[in-house]
Nucleic acid binder design. Sequence first.
DNA 1: CTTATTGTTTCCTAATTAAGAAACTTGTAT
DNA 2: ATACAAGTTTCTTAATTAGGAAACAATAAG
Lengths: 109, 109
Amino acid sequence: MKSERLRKKSLDEMIDKHIGEIGTEKRDNFEEELRLDILGQTIRRIREDKHLTQAQLGEMIGVKKAQISKIENNLTDARFETILKVFRALNAKISFNVELMNQNIQFEQ
Amino acid sequence: MKSERLRKKSLDEMIDKHIGEIGTEKRDNFEEELRLDILGQTIRRIREDKHLTQAQLGEMIGVKKAQISKIENNLTDARFETILKVFRALNAKISFNVELMNQNIQFEQ
DNA sequence: CTTATTGTTTCCTAATTAAGAAACTTGTAT
DNA sequence: ATACAAGTTTCTTAATTAGGAAACAATAAG
């Protein structure tokens, strides 16, 4: 069956085939959703590790608990600074490692 | 051409100057405490290295050149998705490495 | 079962990003 | 100098985040 053959392919190949090639609109949307999903999951994971409620985390950065909920569930495209504030409040060091060719530009927030 | 010679410093030259020559320890393990305003400068450097105008970069991600200008000059707190789009358009892989106690949570764009 | 806590969702409103457009400035080339 | 391209700034309007508040669901504890 097709599904058996597809199972042997790599995840990238499957995504290429079923979602679309990189660069296509459909693929771009998929990649973006995937990424934002991971972001919310990550924030939730760290927050729960620190035993903080959404309300407590929100208070720390001047954001309502409703906003934290939306960020964690990927229901909003928050502002860049807001996302950084979240990580700062969680005392999580987030570094942006920009890989360009063979060079690395790394900076932390 | 004259314009080529008069162009601003390339990304390579910037990194050489500020981080170190290729092969040096400092260059290999670049870690520097930087502020948010570096984000705009980083985007500008990469864009110029790719010989893209602000208008061209904006077109690639559905943002006006005025917005690119504001982002590069840190005159706006853009949305998280917009910043990711910029790096994606510049073909720069940006990974978010969240360090939390003993664990590392890493996810890439 | 009742109560409290936490998280989700919805309403309205305020604040801000971004579009769209244009004017202006700066820099480069002829 | 003049023309052109690139970047900056400003304006109005549209779209969206976030505040403020409240209702609601889910869970756990008493």
